[in-house]
Design a protein around this nucleic acid. Structure first.
Lengths: 201, 201
DNA sequence: GTCTATACAAAGATAGAC
DNA sequence: GTCTATCTTTGTATAGAC
């Protein structure tokens, strides 16, 4: 089966619909009937392909996590690029990803509470990050600071504006196009900020 | 009725239980039966005091938002304190609050998507922030940078580690007491970091 | 104000025909 | 593989006794 065909199988259509509904509503509020309807199929068919709502959810969740973290591996272990280049790349790639799927992080963080380590472990991020060339570079640059703090800061600067977007847009006056513009600016700004943070104790 | 008494009325006990269950599970996954049980009362009683699950939820939600933002007002409009002092105060107070209620922000952000402006407007944060003395000081210090970016950064540095805690703790090895320790450190660190960010373009 | 019992609605899952 | 019809479970809300 060709790639184009594969994208339009019933199974794929259901998964696509499920991804949308789950990320919009969260696991509990998502209804299998809605997923079926959006996929243009019958409810019974959903249970034919995926045995249960929970099973379907886990599959979607794993794919999301994979999408969210897999891009990292390549960057983290590139021994030729500088730390600055890596940070630029990470910021840029994540912001692009989050522009396409703005509520992915909120969704992941929300649902991950229910099954603590389970999902995270499956991804193997733990080891990838720990042994990465990036962490060596980063820890070196952090000097007397704890690298963990600065790692948190990096992720915070990238991800938080997307998580808090609904609130921010209501507290200050920025329409959608302006907000996108702001996020684009941050691709360039974040590396500079992180540099400043690394210099300062 | 005394304050101590009031805290133990059935109504208060239900609200307390509801706050816990809602923040743990979100609106959709929270079950009224669980709330009733945790409050040590009958399910019917919950509907006697609060007409519906949704009504109860809105009450809790407003109280949460109030708690989250009301402390700000005083700090923001203090014309005697320096910008640094304000930032220190904000960081310290928020971190203290979040240590007590770690999943409050995730809960707020998650549920706020369902009723965009409605809740935010009721709080009146918009005007408080916009006209605050803090924003004058902050914009001044930001110089050529957009204050909005730096405001995002400030909130990101404070809040994000609490939102992402479940993931972070699984990716790197830190137990609960260590994590609390880290958050305590950030009370002192964040003001320094923000200072560095303000200096750098 | 508080509880028991129950009606009512919604949602997940399955059986069986095609 | 796909659909219709239906079962079962679970959650919300109410009626009525004490």
């Amino acid at each position: 089966m060709s790639k184009a065909d594969k994208d339009h199988t019933t199974e794929e259509r259901i998964k696509e619909a499920a991804r949308e509904v789950f990320t919009e509503k969260g696991f509990a509020a998502a209804r299998t009937r809605d997923i079926a309807e959006r996929a243009g199929i019958n409810l019974a068919l959903l249970n034919y392909y995926f045995r249960s709502k929970e099973n379907l959810f886990n599959i979607i969740m794993l794919e999301n996590l994979h999408q969210f973290f897999s891009g990292l591996k390549g960057v983290l272990n590139d021994e030729t690029s500088s730390l600055e280049a890596k940070i630029e790349s990470i910021a840029s790639n994540y912001i692009d990803l989050l522009m396409k799927q703005p509520n992915l992080p909120l969704f992941i963080m929300m649902e991950i509470r229910n099954e603590p380590q389970k999902l995270v472990e499956k991804m193997g991020i733990r080891d990838v990050l720990k042994n990465s060339y990036f962490m060596k570079q980063f820890s070196m640059a952090a000097r007397e600071n704890k690298p963990l703090h600065l790692l948190m800061n990096l992720m915070a600067l990238i991800i938080f504006p997307f998580i808090a977007r609904p609130i921010i847009q209501n507290v200050v006056d920025v329409d959608n196009t302006e907000y996108i513009q702001l996020m684009q600016e941050r691709k360039k700004l974040i590396p500079r900020w992180v540099k400043a943070l690394l210099r300062n104790g």
